[in-house]
Design a binder for these strands. Structure first.
Lengths: 239, 239
DNA sequence: CCATCCTGAGAGCGCCGCTCTTGTTTCCTA
DNA sequence: TAGGAAACAAGAGCGGCGCTCTCAGGATGG
């Protein structure tokens, strides 16, 4: 019968979820490299070999946590964006950037797992790329909406010709209706935002920046200007 | 006698250096988290406990490698900058950025150790902050020289007031004569460059950007424009 | 009701970081 | 120059790790 078969599969799914929950908690405490499959098993009252019935290796458990992390930060950014008026482009951009940073500060170890150096020899499997694009999708939608509203200045040098196919591909998914130059600068800004958060989280801004909340907002808006989003009529002065 | 005392200390220094050399080689092969003090000792024909005479813990060995990494990337960037004409600000900026990226691509594991997620529970000791500033010093000198030559546009929103003391402190070291707004945008660009390299190295640009050499150059010049470095008379078009 | 599969438990392998003890060599000094 | 202190390499060992294999018992499904 299908129901009985589902019965076993249900308890299996539940146990799988419980393992990832415990692992995520321990990840938040000790960090990814110190995450121990044995410790997870211990906390669950299992023997370590039993866990291997659910995750064939420690890396597979980490993969599950990475997917969770991408989804979590994706949800955070989506909610931050959704709380803004649709036509408030700078507000949406700032909210999304703050969403990334806020989630990162709240879950530093998960952030490091997702956006930090990949675990040794670990290669991101196929399943991670779809949740990984959630954040990019939100940022892309903001830029796309801004372009549609005519609120983007396409300034700056043109991207290299070799970027054309990449831009075309991105236009089909996350950045519809966005010209090549803005696509290139959006990718740059995206990497920049993550770079800023990483710098802050990994200690590069120690003894450099005091009020990091305010600085991040300023930097995020600067990067909005880099893309060409019309954020404020900036006074232009030559020194 | 001093010479004889130096004799022992010399062999000690030499052995210490040899350990870090072997460790750096193994780091390049297996990555930081898999770096094993025992394996280093094995390759040197020592027993593992002997290595502890030279490095009190595995973390201390990693610290030495981190310092080496900061110095190595610092040297790379310094040389890249030195090869340019002093008054070619955009050329120097691009060369320095390429220097970072080139070193990172050549030594991915060292880069990950230096700019990636910090090792679990590891806290950067005092000795790392001075070599860590070498790269920033080069980028800062380029911006400073550009400011002195009047080749910087101080455009964009003003940084928050709380950033004033930070900017003043940076003006005393790496960014003399640079106004607050340019200081803030320089920091942003610095983090952005590292973010771009990290994205590329850690796989976020997989299946997104094809010609990464060309894209990076374009992004680096975009970020030069963000700072205000006069890189090219960009045509301005509204879409 | 019985054969099949799934499951958890246990033992065990080889690795790890790190500590402690034991002889031995080197160095400084009285 | 002789003796004590310091540095040294080596070995054994502790607990923990990822992972494998075997085995007994219970749920599943014909």
């Amino acid at each position: 019968m299908n129901a009985s078969r589902t019965a076993r599969e249900r308890v299996r799914a539940e146990l799988t979820r419980e393992i990832t929950d415990v692992a995520r908690r321990q990840l938040g405490e000790v960090g990814a490299p110190a995450l121990s499959l044995r410790a997870v098993a211990r906390e669950m009252g299992m023997v370590s070999s039993a866990v291997y019935r659910y995750f064939p290796s420690r890396d597979d458990l980490l993969t599950a946590l990475i997917i969770d992390g991408y989804n979590a930060v994706g949800v955070a950014v989506e909610q931050a964006d959704a709380a803004c008026a649709r036509d408030d482009v700078p507000g949406r951009w700032l909210a999304a950037c703050r969403g990334i940073r806020g989630w990162a500060l709240a879950h530093p170890h998960e952030y490091a797992l997702v956006y930090g150096s990949p675990v040794p020899g670990y290669r991101a499997p196929e399943q991670t790329i779809e949740p990984a694009s959630r954040v990019a999708a939100v940022l892309g939608a903001i830029v796309s909406d801004a372009c549609a509203a005519g609120a983007v200045d396409d300034v700056g040098a043109s991207p290299p010709a070799s970027f054309g196919p990449d831009a075309a591909r991105l236009r089909e998914t996350v950045l519809p209706g966005v010209p090549d130059g803005v696509v290139a600068r959006s990718l740059t800004a995206w990497a920049s935002i993550v770079g800023l958060v990483s710098f802050e989280l990994f200690g590069q801004f120690e003894n450099v920046i005091t009020d990091r909340d305010a600085f991040f907002d300023h930097a995020a808006l600067s990067l909005a200007g880099l893309i060409g989003l019309q954020v404020d009529p900036a006074p232009r002065a030559r020194i």
